[in-house]
């Protein structure tokens, strides 16, 4: 060691390197990563979270990505997001068209969440608000076109509460009834069973961001 050595064994050069250049490098690298990689998980639209998830922005921070909810889910509905989710990497997601949430009455996923990202105050499955089902393509919906489908209505775990059938006269044929499925937004828990059950290749009823209050039956 040369004469510059201090009592802690660090030279002036090493000290400067450690306390000036390093943070600078880190900040540069950090902003680089942040602009490319850290977009909002919502950037690609709505992400369906497990029951009890707190508001999305806070959820992303509160979820420690331990995967216990996915391990607790008996239906394997909860998957861990991969790198495509950006900031949401490693967070639990539900893709209803694959496996929707079947609303276990004892909420095992919420029970195991350590960090409060899934709120333990949630005990009643009818109070779940993961999202809200919306009929996004009324022109394609078989029931609205006058056929007897109503599969989403019959599969809905909250049948006659969250999805109801509103019959009206079929003016096109003049002699039949249109049995239109209508989502009662204030009751819908967003489990996605309707989205899963839709018989069309591209589901016309899908779960979207939670809507708390009903404004219009035909809103989409």
């Amino acid at each position: 060691m040369d004469s510059e050595t201090t009592c802690s064994g660090i030279t002036r050069r090493q000290f400067l390197k450690g306390s000036a250049i390093t943070p600078l490098t880190l900040i540069l690298a950090g902003t680089g990563v942040a602009t490319v990689y850290l977009r909002h998980a919502d950037a690609q639209g709505f992400t369906l979270r497990p029951p009890g998830a707190i508001a999305e922005k806070r959820f992303l921070a509160a979820c420690v990505r331990c995967g216990k909810c996915a391990q607790a889910c008996p239906y394997l509905s909860i998957k861990m997001a991969g790198g495509e989710a950006g900031v949401g990497i490693g967070t639990p997601v539900i893709v209803p068209r694959e496996i929707p949430c079947y609303l276990c009455s004892d909420l095992p996923c919420v029970k195991v969440c350590p960090s409060g990202a899934l709120d333990k105050k949630l005990e009643d499955i009818e109070k779940i608000r993961m999202g809200t089902a919306v009929i996004i393509d009324r022109e394609s919906c078989l029931s609205i076109r006058g056929l007897r489908c109503e599969v989403c209505y019959r599969q809905c775990p909250l049948i006659d509460k969250a999805i109801v059938i509103e019959p009206r006269h079929n003016t096109r044929t003049g002699e039949h009834t249109i049995m239109e499925p209508v989502v009662r937004k204030e009751k819908c828990v967003g489990c996605g069973i309707c989205e899963k059950s839709c018989v069309l290749p591209k589901p016309v009823i899908v779960v979207q961001k939670t809507v708390e209050t009903q404004k219009d039956s035909y809103e989409f």
């Binding site: 707190i54 806070r58 959820f59 992303l60 921070a61 509160a62 979820c63 420690v64 350590p114 960090s115 409060g116 990202a117 333990k120």
Partner: peptide, 23 residues
């Protein structure tokens, strides 16, 4: 026995603003 990474806890606390006592 519940175990938790203290740094993950700090991040969840600061960013998520939730505190769960067992955690």
């Amino acid at each position: 026995l519940p175990l938790a990474d203290p740094l993950a806890f700090l991040q969840a606390l600061i960013g998520g603003m939730v505190i769960v006592l067992p955690y």
